[in-house]
Design a protein around this nucleic acid. Structure first.
Lengths: 146, 146
DNA sequence: TTATATATTAGATATAATCTAAACAGGTTT
DNA sequence: AAACCTGTTTAGATTATATCTAATATATAA
């Protein structure tokens, strides 16, 4: 898969973000990753190439990209948060055993009933499934609970 | 609302957990809370009464209660995780502005398509809505995005 | 090219959660 | 009741994760 350099720059500019080498590297790395790396993993991967980004820069850029709506942050119980370029809409699957986060094809989720919602204003919804990923699932699934 | 002392003890015993004063206090506090407190808040609240629990004990017990399936942990981006006694099934609403976590009435969520799911084994699903809570929502909602 | 607002940096600091090893307390057995 | 065993609690140290600081550098517009 080839990354469109200009497309990244345009989407950064469109959010009022300058395209610096460090910021570009973070965005490009997230877009080419199928997995959902942690900040530490992004830091390491981006610095394996060049230029060297500091830890603070990685965090700053992730914050900016999340605020701009270009990246999604997935909080994990206990472990470090994972990040995900918001290419196409999708749901998430988190493996109980290895902790990996995987994308599931998007489909619409019914809204809560108006009565239950009250005066709250909805902005977005996130659907997370948990269980065992393909690698961690036993050959013959012992029990399909859900 | 009155808490059924024996019911708590029975549910602890049913999960193979001894009912110690500290553990009982954590469970009872979570059950009488409509909000979803952080570990630090639980620590403070439980110790306002007695006996004094150490921070480690709060974390130990929360871990045990989560493992036993009596409590749910809700990871938050950036902030401390929040905890929630699993009384009845429900979804969650998280306020973008004040960070509060509120319960929404449960309703069934459609499973992912078999093709998208592959060999993964599902255990549970979590549906999280985000937006503005009743307190934070403007009088006349400026924009209902979702 | 120059001005200027924005971005980057290393290292210190803050925050959240876990670990450690010793002491303690239920429940059981003798 | 005493001894026993296992699970629990404890204070404080430690780790892990993320943010802050203030000096320096860079991208972009004029």
């Amino acid at each position: 898969m080839f990354l469109d350099t200009d497309a990244i720059k345009r989407s950064l500019a469109g959010s009022g973000l300058r395209s610096t080498p460090q910021r570009y590297a973070v965005m490009a790395f997230l877009m080419e990753q199928a997995e959902h790396p942690t900040a530490a993993e992004i830091f390491e991967a981006v610095n394996r190439v060049d230029p060297r980004s500091s830890r603070a820069t990685i965090y700053n850029n992730l914050r900016d990209l999340v605020q701009a709506g270009l990246v999604r942050e997935v909080a994990m119980e206990g472990r470090a948060a994972r990040f995900d370029a918001k290419g196409t809409r999708h749901h998430h699957f988190i493996c109980d055993r290895c902790g990996n986060v995987e994308d599931l094809e998007w489909y619409d989720v019914p809204r809560p009933a108006a009565a239950s919602l009250g005066k709250r204003v909805l902005r977005e919804c996130e659907l997370i499934f948990r269980g065992l990923c393909t690698k961690c699932a036993p050959r013959r699934a012992s029990r399909q609970v859900f």
